[in-house]
């Protein structure tokens, strides 16, 4: 805590309290709850975009607008399978952490990260080979913005995983008692997954 009051005073007050009441031990951890609430808010962002897409689509006289080429399903389908299965893989990491198995964390998180990276590469490949650009028409714009926004979330998830792996170099960093980072990333990753499933249905299948 920078810039708080005079160090002596702080020291004195803090010490007195810590000795007297030991409140620092009883400070429960609300971070997981916080993450959960945050993800609920985050899902409203996607919900807003989904509803916008649905409205555009319902109001339009023709959908997708004339001249939009068919979307290829195969590659995105495989991609989806990879992303969805990675949710199961990441759960294994959580189990490993709860058993104080730092190697397991490394393995399972590593695999999840690779699967996430494959997903992103796949998406990049798809973008590169699509016949329409961002500005082609309303469908194209929504397609790119929705998938791009999701891709950004996947990317953030990857970074978070790398951060966890970095900390995991110290085998004692995560333990059966203390594995907030792992749990949080796992929850986030499930969230990203669910969003993708909705997206896939909306954009590719509907």
């Amino acid at each position: 805590m920078q810039g708080s009051i005079n160090t002596t005073a702080e020291g004195t007050l803090n010490l007195a309290q810590e000795e007297a009441h030991g409140h620092h031990e009883e400070h429960p951890d609300h971070r997981m709850f916080g993450i959960l609430v945050f993800l609920c808010a985050e899902s409203m962002l996607f919900l807003g975009l989904f509803v916008a897409y649905i409205t555009f689509r319902l109001v339009a006289t023709e959908w997708p607008p004339e001249g939009t080429p068919e979307l290829e399903i195969l590659l995105p389908g495989i991609n989806s399978l990879i992303l969805i299965s990675s949710s199961f893989v990441i759960h294994k990491a959580d189990t490993a952490a709860k058993q104080d198995d730092s190697k397991g964390v490394l393995t399972w998180f590593g695999i999840t990260a690779i699967m996430g990276a494959i997903f992103l590469l796949g998406q990049g490949y798809e973008y590169a080979n699509l016949e329409f650009g961002l500005r082609e028409n309303l469908f194209a714009s929504t397609f790119y913005v929705l998938t791009g926004f999701h891709g950004l979330h996947v990317f953030v998830g990857l970074l978070l995983m790398l951060a966890v792996l970095w900390r995991n170099r110290d085998p004692k960093h995560y333990s059966s008692e203390n594995h907030f980072g792992i749990e949080a990333v796992e929850l986030y990753w499930h969230f990203v997954d669910v969003i993708w499933i909705i997206l896939f249905v909306l954009l590719y299948l509907w």
Binding site: C40, E42, M44, L45, F46, L47, L49, A52, S141, V145
Partner: peptide, 17 residues
């Protein structure tokens, strides 16, 4: 705040595009 603000963000992101 938690329910509605993200939707504004969505609107503004699309507007920015």
């Amino acid at each position: 705040i938690l329910i509605s603000t993200p939707v504004l963000a969505g609107a503004l992101i699309l507007l920015a595009f």
